[in-house]
Design a protein around this nucleic acid. Structure first.
Lengths: 246, 246
DNA sequence: AAAGTCCTAATGTCAGCACAAATAAATTTC
DNA sequence: GAAATTTATTTGTGCTGACATTAGGACTTT
C-alpha cells in the first residue's frame, strides 16, 4: 500500500500547504499515477508521509471530494473516482474557455454605447435610477465561423472600456484587470430557434436551433457587475458540467 | 452589532453542530432576519455566542461561502451576499424538482425493456460485454401538458424496476430506495429543433426549439448507474444554476 | 493638509488531541 | 457450518491553541 504519489511539500512557499496537496493529488490523478478506483492510504498515514497534520490533510481531501475527484467512505477509505470526469463548469467567459482549448477566437463588436440604463437593467444590476452602463453586442467567431451572438450590460464604475478593447480580448479579462474579483454568477440555459437577424449573423438557417444563456455575475463585494444575453449555434456549442452531490 | 440571529444549537441532536449552524444562518438569510449586505459578527464572537469552537463555526461559514450565501474578506469581516441568489443546480431528477416546486407531474411510460446493452451503452456505463440493462422512454407531463421526452439506460444489478414503478414515481427515488447514493453526474446541455416524432409527443410544432440534456450519474462506489438523453420544450423549461468561483 | 507609518481587528493557516460512528473482517458461539 | 458478536480500521466531528496575513483606520510626521 506504499502509495507513494511522488509529491513534495514546500513549506517556504506562499501557497498554503493544503493547496499544495490538492494540486499534487490532482496532478497525480490526471497524469495517471493514481488510477481510477485505486484506494489512497488513510488520512493519518498520508499526513505522516508528508509531515503534515491530519486537519491539513483532511482539508485538502475535502476539496478534492467536493470537486468530485475523490470519494470517501467512513470505515472503508478514500478512492479515486471512476474516471473521465470532466472539470466542472467554471465561472469563466466563453473567450477563456476557447483560448484554454487552444482555439483562436475573434470578436466583432457590432454596437457599443455608454448610456443611461433602462429600467430592467437597473433592476437586474441593482443600480440607482439614472445610472449609466456600457451596452454592447458582439459576434464571436472561431476559425472564421460564427459561434455566438452576445449582448451585454456592464456597470461603468469599475473599468473603462471601448470597442477596441472588446475586439481584442474577452470581457472577463478586461473586468478582472479592472480589479473585479468574481465570486458567483447565476445563469439560465435554454433554447430557441433563430430569427432572421440571428440567422444572418450566425450564418445559420432561419429556424435552426440556438442555445440561449442569460447570466448575471456578482463580485466579491456583492456588486452585480455584468449581465448578458447570449445565443450560440446549437451545432457548435453546448454546456458541459459536473454536478457534485453534497 | 449584537447580531442576534435567533438560532439555537441542540447538542443532543444527531445532526452535526456545524450543519445546524449552516441551516440556521441559511434560514436567517432566506427569512430576511439577515439582510443582504449586512455584516456578521466575527467568527470568534459568533462561536462564543453559540458556545462553539472557532473551527466548528468556521466550517459552517466555509460551506455558506462555498454555496455563495456569504462573502468573507480578510481583515474586514463577513457579509451576506447581495440577494436573490438562487440555489445552485442540484443533483436531482426533474421529478424531484417539479414536486419540490409544488407541481404534480405525471409520467407516461412509452416503452420498457430489459435487454442486453448495445456497445455505446456498455461503454458509457462501463459495463462488461453481455451485460443487461433496463431501457425505457418516458413522457413527463405537468398539468396535462407535455414537458419532457426522456430515454434512459440503467444498469440492472442495483434495483428491480417495472413500468408501474416508473409511472408512479421518479427514476432517482427508485434508485435511491435501491440503495444508490449518488455522488456526481456529468451532463451536457444543448439545443435542437423538434423532429416529427418529438413534436407529436410533446404537442409542439415540428421545428420548434427543444432543450437537450445528456446525463450520466455515478454513485459513491464509482459505478456508473444511469445514463439518459432527454429533450424539453424550450418554452416550458430551462436550466438555472449558480456558479461559485473557487 | 497631505503623506507615510503604526496599530488593530478580522480572517487565513496549521498543529495536536480526543472521541464518535460506520464498516468490514475476524472471532466466537450455538 | 452458520449466525451472532467482537474487534480493528477508517473517516466524521469537535475542541484548544498559536501564529500569519491582510485591510483599514488612526496617528504621527513632514
Amino acid at each position: 500500500m506504499a502509495n507513494n504519489l511522488g509529491l513534495s511539500i514546500d513549506r517556504s512557499s506562499p501557497v498554503p500547504l493544503y493547496h499544495q496537496v490538492v494540486q499534487g493529488i490532482e496532478a497525480a490523478i490526471y497524469s495517471g499515477v493514481l488510477e481510477p478506483g485505486s484506494r489512497l492510504d488513510n488520512e493519518i498515514d498520508l499526513a505522516a508521509q508528508l509531515n503534515l497534520s491530519r486537519p491539513t490533510m483532511r482539508k485538502a481531501m475535502d476539496e478534492l471530494v467536493r470537486s468530485g475527484l475523490l470519494v470517501r467512505k467512513r470505515g472503508v477509505g478514500t478512492q479515486v473516482v471512476s474516471s473521465q470526469v470532466r472539470r466542472p463548469l467554471e465561472l469563466s467567459s466563453l473567450y477563456d474557455d476557447l483560448t484554454n482549448n487552444g482555439k483562436k477566437p475573434t470578436t466583432d463588436v457590432l454596437s457599443f454605447a455608454h448610456l443611461e440604463a433602462d429600467e430592467a437593467t437597473l433592476a437586474t444590476l441593482q443600480l440607482p435610477a439614472g445610472s449609466k452602463v456600457y451596452h454592447f453586442t458582439r459576434l464571436r467567431k472561431v476559425g472564421g465561423k460564427p459561434l455566438a451572438l452576445m449582448e451585454n450590460w456592464v456597470r461603468d464604475d469599475i473599468a473603462d472600456m471601448d470597442e477596441a478593447m472588446l475586439a481584442a480580448e474577452g470581457l472577463y479579462s478586461i473586468l478582472r484587470r479592472g480589479g473585479v474579483n468574481f465570486r458567483l454568477a447565476t445563469q439560465r440555459i435554454g433554447a430557441m430557434t433563430a430569427n432572421e437577424y440571428q440567422a444572418s449573423m450566425l450564418e445559420a438557417a432561419e429556424g435552426s436551433a440556438l442555445v440561449t444563456m442569460e447570466r448575471t455575475a456578482v463580485d466579491d463585494t456583492g456588486r452585480r457587475v455584468e449581465t448578458g444575453h447570449h445565443v450560440y449555434r446549437a451545432d457548435s456549442y453546448s454546456f458541459e458540467m459536473t454536478l457534485v452531490q453534497r
